Amino acid sequence: MSSFQVSRGTPRSAFVPSPVFVGILALVAVSGWMTWTGYGNVRVDVFLLVLSGWVLSLCLHEYAHALVAYFSGDRGVADRGYLTLNPLKYSHPLLSIVLPLVIVVLGGIGLPGGAVWVDHAHVRNKVKESLISAAGPATNVLFALLLAAPFAFGAGDDLRLALTGSGEVVVLGEHGPFWLALGALAFLQVTASVLNLLPVPGLDGGNLLQPWMSPAYRRTYDLFAPYGFILLFMLLWQPTVNHYFFALVTWLAGLIGVPEIGQYGLEFMRFWSDR
């Protein structure tokens, strides 16, 4: 055991980023360079940057939950490997990583995944329980603001789209594809922030409120919690709900400076399509 311990019984190695996470960071950096320089097929570059950046944000989202849980009393998150930022350690990797990636590719929505498992028996404080739930969405909000910051300082002002004679869409402007990908990532973070803060049973927004409910309401909440994700998924595929949801997200994204064209990056990255 290392001589340095963050807490009794927790070695320093529990906080060391895993090789898997380092690999994700490397993919973000390489795909970012490819997109910046226009290396190869630019639509593939944008695809790699958006997806690797999205996975990175998912890891940080779950890490925030685990880190706050650790300092709130649940030291077991260290033993479960959540503090190493390794997505393969999540209790539901399929829900936490694979499904959100598929939804991003198909629908352009930052759908929240399955959260890390927290033993609330060791967290005996309502404020701390709510903070654990709020930590993940707060990470998405911060990520959205950081990604939007360059646009506030004029980056990507010359970004625009054009059609070639063959009908192919091209991205114009200095480093246009990079800024398009960054705008798409920022837009995704706004969608994730909104969805994660909705008071839906089983999701972060609902879990944030759950500690403050009366015992009767908590029992009802716990009954519906396993199905909250499915309910949200079904609602988002309803045309009317989908329209109002994206209208809200577009408005919020505009408030923080994300260019409206950034949303198109989620379509542009589908290099296998005609658009």
Score class of each variant (00 low, 15 high):
M1T: 06
S3R: 14
S3L: 14
S3M: 13
V6W: 10
G9I: 12
G9P: 06
T10L: 11
P11E: 07
R12L: 15
P17C: 11
S18D: 15
S18N: 11
F21C: 12
F21G: 09
G23N: 05
A29S: 06
V30I: 15
M34H: 12
G40E: 09
V42Q: 10
R43S: 11
R43L: 04
L48Y: 11
L48G: 05
L49D: 04
S52E: 03
W54C: 02
L56M: 15
L56I: 05
L58R: 01
H65M: 03
G76S: 15
V77W: 02
A78L: 12
A78V: 12
T84S: 14
L85K: 03
K89C: 14
K89S: 15
Y90R: 02
H92G: 02
I103H: 02
I103D: 00
G107V: 05
G113L: 00
V118I: 15
V118K: 11
V123G: 09
R124A: 10
K128H: 13
E129N: 14
E129R: 15
I132M: 09
S133Q: 07
S133G: 11
A138S: 13
L142E: 05
A144L: 10
A149C: 11
A155Q: 09
R160H: 15
A162M: 03
G165P: 01
S166H: 11
G167V: 04
E168K: 14
E174F: 10
E174W: 11
G176K: 01
P177M: 04
P177F: 07
F178P: 00
W179D: 02
G183E: 02
F187E: 01
V190T: 02
V190A: 01
T191Q: 01
V194E: 03
L197K: 00
V200Y: 03
P201G: 08
D204S: 08
L209Q: 04
L209N: 04
W212T: 05
S214L: 15
D222H: 13
L223Q: 12
F224A: 15
Y227E: 01
G228D: 04
L232P: 04
F233N: 03
F233E: 00
V241A: 15
V241K: 12
N242L: 02
N242W: 03
Y244L: 09
A247T: 12
A247M: 11
W251K: 00
L252P: 00
L255T: 04
G257W: 11
I261M: 06
Q263T: 06
Y264A: 05
E267D: 06
F268S: 01
R275I: 13
